[in-house]
Structures are given as structure tokens and as C-alpha cells.
Amino acid sequence: MKRVSSTISLLGASLALITSSSAAEEGKKTRDEMVMDDRSALEESAHWIYNDLKKAFAEAKASGRPLMVVHRCIP
């Protein structure tokens, strides 16, 4: 359970990054603006690789870690 709690905590920190940018949340922003904002946020994140599966697979192979691939429709 401790590990689960730890994972939730870390997920919580990244929650906005995982599930952000729904149209309802973003209000008046255009779809293009939401996509660009999402890219800016994710590219600055230490935890996430943005839209680059080739890099992700290479990193998983090198590190021995499993991949968590999140497909998220922004607009």
C-alpha cells in the first residue's frame, strides 16, 4: 500500500500534465492555443517525453524501465 500511496502522490504532481487541456477546462482558448500550451508544459517536464516514441523506446531499452504511453486528445 505504501508503494501505491507513493505512486498516487507522484501521479498527483503530474495530474495536470496527464489529464489537462480538456476544452471545458481551457475555456476560451482556441484549440491551437491549447495544443501549444500543452507542448510547452510537457517539454519542460522532467517526467515526460513529448510526442517522441522513438526516443521513449530507446530510453526504455537503455534503462530497463517499462513504458507508459499516454494518448491524450487535446482539442
Binding site: V35, R39, W48, P66, V70, C73
Partner: peptide, 8 residues
């Protein structure tokens, strides 16, 4: 512990 990737 994961390699996290976001694909939009």
C-alpha cells in the same frame, strides 16, 4: 520507474 510518453 516508468519511461513516460505523452502522445497527442
Amino acid at each position: 520507474q516508468f519511461v513516460c510518453v505523452r502522445v497527442i
